[in-house]
């Protein structure tokens, strides 16, 4: 397998995962806000903060109302992580790996791209948003299934798994961060007796954005609460979107690749740090945010190790 192809497959997978996650995020958030009491200051801006692109947003927007935020996240060509841009990059990487991917994969991504481009308005307005985003999520899932079922599980597939799980771990960590910090902060604006049901629905929406609600209920029998949700999303070994599960998938894929010593070392360190976490301590001391920051830096280190070992060397022009 060519180093260049490995790199393109990896990014194809990463951008598709990012596309799906962006759609999930907007979808769940739209539902959540309908449940909150009037006057709650949990705003659309939180969505911008999750994706880590607030500076660029602030440069070009005066306010963060629903329409502006959704448009920015879904359709803005100037936002490098907008859904349409992620999808365009996924498509570009699919186009340039057509010689090794099944043609159905390309057709699916290409189709989804055209659909999304032509229907963004449906996503921006409230009425058609749910159907629009679901179509994107379904198509992404279809691609995952197609690849699982029709690509040989050889090294090409390992890079699909790498790209998907790095992106997934990263996104899950962002969602936890936002759930814990931003959402809880806003809760404090409410009177104590009002808090409980809303805290509940906030954490539920965090779970739902990761399709984790049902799995959580099956694993954790207690009612939905912050500690358990964070613990579940960080450290559950079986739930596919939990950080620890993503890390284990990364380890499995990396173990099958040649020259894997450095990447294995980096990922093993990260896995240990996540397993040994004292959730209660970081939540009570309110330094979850710091931990998530360092977690994201560690995930970036995994990416760097993968890139250094298996992708084309960067040539100096």
């Amino acid at each position: 397998m060519l180093a260049r192809v490995a790199e393109r497959v990896y990014w194809l997978s990463r951008y598709m995962e990012r596309t799906e996650n962006s759609a999930r995020l907007v979808n769940v958030y739209s539902n959540l806000l309908l449940d909150l009491p009037r006057g709650t200051k949990v705003g659309w801006r939180t969505l911008i903060d999750i994706t880590g692109i607030h500076e660029l947003f602030d440069e070009n927007h005066e306010s963060a109302d629903e329409r502006q935020v959704i448009k920015y996240l879904l359709a803005d060509k100037n936002n490098p992580s907008s859904l349409i841009n992620s999808l365009a990059l996924a498509r570009e990487n699919a186009r340039t790996t057509r010689e090794i991917m099944p043609s159905e994969a390309w057709e699916l991504i290409n189709d989804l791209y055209h659909y999304t481009k032509e229907n963004t308005n449906k996503g921006i307005g409230r009425t058609g948003r749910h159907a629009f985003l679901n179509k994107i999520i379904n198509a992404s899932q279809q691609l995952t299934g197609l690849l699982a079922g029709s690509v040989s599980h050889d090294r090409v597939y390992d890079f699909v798994v790498l790209g998907r799980n790095i992106e997934r771990a990263d996104m899950t960590s962002r969602i936890i961060d936002t759930g814990a910090a931003n959402l809880s902060l806003s809760i404090e604006q409410l009177k104590d007796e009002e808090t409980l049901p809303y805290e509940n629905s906030l954490w539920m929406s965090v779970l739902r954005s990761l399709s984790a609600y049902q799995m959580y209920r099956q694993h954790v029998h207690d009612r939905v609460n912050g500690d358990d949700v964070v613990d579940f999303l960080l450290r559950n070994a079986d739930f596919p979107r939990a950080v620890l599960h993503c890390l284990q998938s990364l380890t499995n894929a990396i173990e099958r690749l040649p020259n894997n010593e450095e990447s294995l070392r980096v990922i093993a360190g990260l896995q240990r740090r996540v397993s040994e976490l004292n959730i209660e301590k970081i939540l009570r001391k309110a330094n979850l945010h710091e931990f998530i920051d360092s977690l994201q830096a560690d995930i970036a280190d995994v990416h760097n190790a993968v890139s250094k070992t298996w992708f084309l060397p960067v040539t100096e022009a």
Binding site: M1, L2, A3, R4, P258, L312
Partner: peptide
């Protein structure tokens, strides 16, 4: 794709001892 051959760009190939090689993950 139809031939099952690798699609390479110039930077994927390298010549050593007058022989041509491609850069792979191995």
């Amino acid at each position: 794709q139809r031939m099952g051959a690798e699609l390479v760009e110039g930077s994927d190939l390298v010549v050593e001892d007058d022989k041509v090689y491609m850069r792979t993950i191995h």
